[in-house]
Design a protein around this nucleic acid. Sequence first.
DNA 1: TATAATTGTCTATATCACTAGACAAATTTT
DNA 2: AAAATTTGTCTAGTGATATAGACAATTATA
Lengths: 256, 256
Amino acid sequence: MGVIGAKMAGQQMASSIERRSGVSLWRQIADQILHSIAAGDFAENAALPPEVALAERYGVNRHTVRSAISALVQEGVLRAEQGRGTFVLSRKRLSYPIGARTRFSTGLQGQTSERHIVLLTSAVESASQRVAEGLDLARGTEVIRLETRGEADGRPVSRAASWYEAKRFAGIDAVMAETGSITASLRRFGVDDYLRQSTVLSARHADAADLADLNLQPGAIVLVAVAVNVTTDGRPVQFSETRFPAERVELKLSAL
Amino acid sequence: MGVIGAKMAGQQMASSIERRSGVSLWRQIADQILHSIAAGDFAENAALPPEVALAERYGVNRHTVRSAISALVQEGVLRAEQGRGTFVLSRKRLSYPIGARTRFSTGLQGQTSERHIVLLTSAVESASQRVAEGLDLARGTEVIRLETRGEADGRPVSRAASWYEAKRFAGIDAVMAETGSITASLRRFGVDDYLRQSTVLSARHADAADLADLNLQPGAIVLVAVAVNVTTDGRPVQFSETRFPAERVELKLSAL
DNA sequence: TATAATTGTCTATATCACTAGACAAATTTT
DNA sequence: AAAATTTGTCTAGTGATATAGACAATTATA
């Protein structure tokens, strides 16, 4: 159910934007346009309603609408052409499957022509409360932390931190850098198969690190998945926290 | 990993707030404080750092921090006491389980002392493309739409629209109003058991309707789950779109 | 009891966000 | 060719946001 251009036959329309909320009108309008596009209200290359129409629709000045549009042009979502109109560029959201056999690359097959995982940094550290619980280790046990980014067709689609018991998976960082695949790396350590034991999802505004890592604009939303993967005999092998840009990714929960 | 009060031993700290982003500084700081609380940086009734410390931490004027705090006091998250400090009130996020047997009431048992579903409105309409696909019906088939709100301990925790084939479930709105339970209502129509066939999750900023329905502040985030429930023989019985306030709810994906 | 720490209130000023109106520039339609 | 449509640019005024500083009021601490 789109927001823009919806007709309500004289009825008062929920104007959908709030003043004095701490979020500027142009940012709210930009977000709604993004939402409309994601909801499929506009085909790719379709024209947005003219600025005056949008201004009337939202009950704001035309300049305010222009601010919203120029932000989206900056983000690469829209293209404005003088005399012609403003057009939609953006692609659809990727649908990232989550289930018992969640795998990055295979999950996005068919939706993208290319995808891979980049290892950003790795470090050995002592397990925090949270990590220790996830991996079923004593607090303070040494663990390896990998910081990775998932990319599909050149765009960042995920940003993850994952932890592994250091003793059992010594050197997994090097293997990961070499193979570019979690599944392949774990196989080197004798883990031929693994299953998703638990996943907890939440959402929040992107922080400064997210903005940089995922190439987002301030105010963007990230989906956060905290998960534990286990071997087929139930032994935890990986604890992870993954952030997905909500504007580019939706999570499809598949049968486990 | 909390944001507030983190020590970085002289290193430059990622200030985490952005100017000229369309989101006012006080709103960004309020959101980060909320996030810190949700991340468990503060126990219930714990004191927030004093205003001057927060102002220094974020690199803003003390008055700006005060705006953020007063917004959170308004939302019922913090309590400020002159001469003493500012204290955390808010409860932890509810963990809402999603799996093959997702049920509202049973899912929140143990976390809340009371929960129920309120039927807000119902209507018979012809199935949109999306609803028709979900229920595996011809487009335009008559369906019943129920608008409901889930409440736990008096706080709204979900807001859903759900659709049912009108012919098969005629009068389900009345039954729903009477029983206050989806599961019980379906049982009246011979559906003794049902399973979650598919769930698609996304996140976005709350729109005006969400703000009103879920009692949220502008700028809040909602998690959106679009799901299809089927009978044990695979026949779709319900298509639904549920919105959860991200600040109060996290989704726990349980084994299907 | 005096001092320090902390929140509450006030004034003043600068900048950003939004409104209002006019007109230019480019494109499409008549 | 002319008119209509649409985006681009400019000026000016108003209200919200943010900074700066001072001091009051309340509570905890020495």
